[in-house]
């Protein structure tokens, strides 16, 4: 009991720390790939500290509520996704809860950004929801095939099943959904070429256009958490999770660095190009994977 409570408290903190480390690493790797020296690794922490000391401005009650909803959603999912052997709420709901809670982050941001009544924010929100529509279809097919292959909705059991045999990405029928997941992973994380939502050069960083001060600091934290969550889910489902936290951390680090390298070399897609990509190859492969998995099963 005590251990569960301690995990409930510590895992979100760990998620925020790792997410901020990822943001710093992101800026450093991007700088080195641009042949620059780059900022110090703790630059996101300095930014967030500065933002907390800067006076922000709220745009109404829904603005605050959406932000809190988004942050709460992100912190809740952490308790359902295992970090190595730690998963405080493993008995309750598993993947289905994660699927529902995953919606809270974009919805909260949409609520909050929409309250600011800035046209750029509206464009950013509509792009975000369209992009979510784009990647949710293959994502649901992938999760369905994984769940039906292991005949369970518990993500802990899926990890256990992989540790008993082989990583799902390298096992025969699940390799197809794994490939599809790799193809949509940049869209789930919102990195380039799928960063149309917060394109600073086009729509002034989209839904975040009216955020300042501590509100923007919370948005940075939510962004860090969403990076951590997206990669954790992928590692748990297809890279076999991990038996101890250090191995798990190394795994999400490797996936993250791969995503940053993709981010560095690709230009930004337009939203309709992104959706037509997401609904073509990843969806086809995921659907094929689902059919093969159900036949093999």
């Amino acid at each position: 009991m005590v251990a569960t409570v301690a995990q409930c408290v510590l895992l979100p903190v760990l998620g925020i720390v790792i997410g901020l480390f990822f943001l710093g690493l992101y800026r450093k790797i991007m700088a080195r790939l641009h042949w620059r020296y780059g900022p110090p690794l703790i630059q996101p922490v300095i930014d967030i500290l500065r933002l907390f000391f800067q006076g922000g401005m709220s745009h109404g009650a829904v603005f605050d509520f959406g932000l809190v909803l988004s942050l709460a959603g992100a912190m809740a999912i952490i308790l359902f996704i295992p970090f190595a052997q730690w998963c405080p709420l493993q008995g309750s709901g598993g993947m289905l809860v994660i699927l529902y809670l995953m919606l809270l982050m974009p919805l909260g941001t949409a609520l909050s950004g929409g309250e600011a009544a800035n046209p750029n924010a509206s464009i950013g929100i509509s792009r975000k929801l369209i992009l979510a529509l784009g990647y949710e279809v293959p994502l649901l097919l992938i999760l369905l095939s994984v769940m039906s292959y292991y005949s369970t909705i518990s993500i802990v059991d899926i990890v256990r099943g992989q540790q008993a045999s082989v990583w799902a990405l390298f096992s025969w029928p699940l390799a197809l959904p794994g490939i599809a997941y790799i193809l949509i992973l940049p869209a789930v994380l919102g990195v380039r070429p799928f960063d149309t939502t917060t394109a600073p050069q086009e729509i002034s960083s989209g839904p975040l256009v009216e955020y300042g001060g501590k509100y923007l600091a919370f948005e940075h934290i939510i962004h860090a958490l969403s990076l951590f969550l997206g990669i954790s889910l992928f590692v748990n489902l297809f890279l076999g999770g991990a038996a101890n936290p250090i191995v798990f951390f190394v795994k999400i680090l490797v996936v993250f660095v791969a995503c940053v390298c993709i981010n560095a070399v690709f230009p930004r897609l337009r939203i309709e190009q992104a959706v037509s990509y997401l609904w073509k190859w990843p969806t086809a492969i995921a659907f094929l994977g689902l059919v093969v998995v159900s036949l093999v099963k």
């Binding site: 700088a31 600073p200 960083s205 256009v209 009216e210």
Partner: peptide, 22 residues
């Protein structure tokens, strides 16, 4: 702000909107 002088090593980055900047 780009590779030659790289203002980001001092923590200086351009932001898109006045609400985010100082």
């Amino acid at each position: 702000i780009t590779a030659r002088w790289d203002a980001e090593r001092f923590g200086i980055i351009p932001v898109a909107t006045p609400r985010q900047g100082n």
